[in-house]
């Protein structure tokens, strides 16, 4: 019994020794590769704190939820905005919609908001309807609140975003 216990302790001791030697060798190798070989080496000591918390703009306006079945979405007096990125907009969009990609990190440029207001006014629209990616959070809802916060009235967002409209309009077909 004592022999078995001694053997097991010795085994763990050997394993610990092996683990420490391996850790030391691998760490030295990593430091050497980082110093001399790596194409994008990392400074051994960071000179400034990492910015891990990126503040996101909080849209402040009010926007009303609109189901994709609501006829106001398809009405002629609705000005439609697509909040998705340009690639998604090019792949599929609601006819006559304007692409204003929403970015969680950057507020929409004021000139873009002005353009939206101008176009909405010139089209004699009675409301602005925004649709986005339909995710949680939804880019459409965020952009709608942002636009509303900049002073544009009667702003709606489509619940479920582009996917919901698409499945309603053409049964999900491209």
């Amino acid at each position: 019994m004592h022999h078995r216990h001694a053997r097991s302790t010795r085994g763990i001791g050997h394993a610990l020794c092996d683990a420490m030697i391996m850790t030391a060798i691998c760490s030295a190798l990593g430091l050497a590769v980082n110093a001399w070989i790596h194409p994008h080496p990392l400074k051994l000591i960071a000179d400034k704190p990492y910015e891990t918390m990126v503040p996101c703009p909080v849209p402040g306006g009010k926007a009303t939820a609109l189901p994709c079945t609501d006829q106001r979405l398809y009405a002629k007096d609705s000005f439609i905005i697509d909040a998705r990125d340009k690639a998604s907009f090019d792949a599929w969009n609601v006819k006559g919609s304007m692409n204003v990609p929403f970015d969680y990190l950057d507020p929409t440029p004021p000139e873009m908001i002005e353009q939206v207001a101008r176009k909405a006014a010139s089209s004699h629209a009675r409301r602005v309807v925004v649709y986005g990616d339909g995710q949680d959070p939804d880019t459409g809802e965020q952009l709608a609140k942002e636009i509303s916060g900049k002073g544009i009235k009667n702003v709606f967002f489509v619940v479920g975003g582009a996917e919901a409209i698409r499945s309603k309009v053409d049964g999900g077909k491209p």
């Binding site: 691998c26 760490s27 190798l29 430091l31 590769v33 990392l42 051994l44 990492y50």
Partner: peptide, 12 residues
């Protein structure tokens, strides 16, 4: 300790 950890740990 952040950068030394980021450099060495993957090699271990």
């Amino acid at each position: 300790l952040i950068n030394p950890m980021a450099i060495c740990l993957p090699w271990v």
